[in-house]
């Protein structure tokens, strides 16, 4: 690591730099032309959270564990008639509201991790910017739509 600190003519460093930029001038830039060409995010990318309403049991674990409390859940109990005649009627939790405010969300993924019933998934989708900040609050319908974009998990490096 011997670095020459001298500053004297013939300024070889300056000309070397010129040569470097000249070479770069004729190189192909790695630009991705975004709206026309899209970079495909890795499958694990934390883009947007999707919800499987079938699996959700309104246990509120995600809302409770969220560090910035951006998940809003409301639900009520419902009587389900007995499946066989003579059986006991059961109560089931029914989801009324499941909103995630992506303006508040910090994309930590804790909600996905704590969900005990596989109701939440990460999708690498990222194109959901809005003109109004209020529109970033995604209701159940939008969260369910994201479910189609959840990719297959990547293969693992064999070790």
């Amino acid at each position: 690591m011997a670095y020459d600190k001298s500053i004297r003519p013939p300024f070889a460093g300056l000309w070397k730099g010129m040569w470097a930029t000249l070479k770069a001038l004729f190189r192909r830039p790695p630009t991705v032309f975004y709206p026309e060409e899209k970079e495909i995010p890795v499958p694990r990318a934390r883009g947007v959270i999707s919800l499987d309403t079938e699996a959700c049991t309104v246990c509120m674990l995600c809302a409770r564990e969220c560090p910035d409390w951006c998940i809003y859940i409301e639900g009520h109990k419902e009587e389900v008639p007995p499946s066989k005649p003579g059986g006991r009627p059961r109560t089931r939790a029914k989801l009324d509201r499941f909103d995630i405010d992506f303006a508040l969300c910090m994309y930590c993924g804790i909600c996905v991790e704590v969900c005990p019933f596989d109701a939440l998934f990460w999708s690498p989708e990222y194109e959901y910017s809005e003109y109004s900040i209020a529109d970033l609050l995604h209701p159940v319908e939008r969260l369910t739509e994201w479910l189609d974009t959840v990719p297959e998990p990547p293969a693992l490096e064999s070790s």
Partner: peptide, 23 residues
């Protein structure tokens, strides 16, 4: 480190080990 993609029964099976091609 994070062992699985989620806590549930299905997501627990999705390991967060190094993805293929990482090396």
């Amino acid at each position: 480190v994070k062992p699985a993609a989620g806590g549930g029964s299905k997501t627990k099976k999705i390991s967060m080990d190094l993805p293929a091609g990482f090396f």
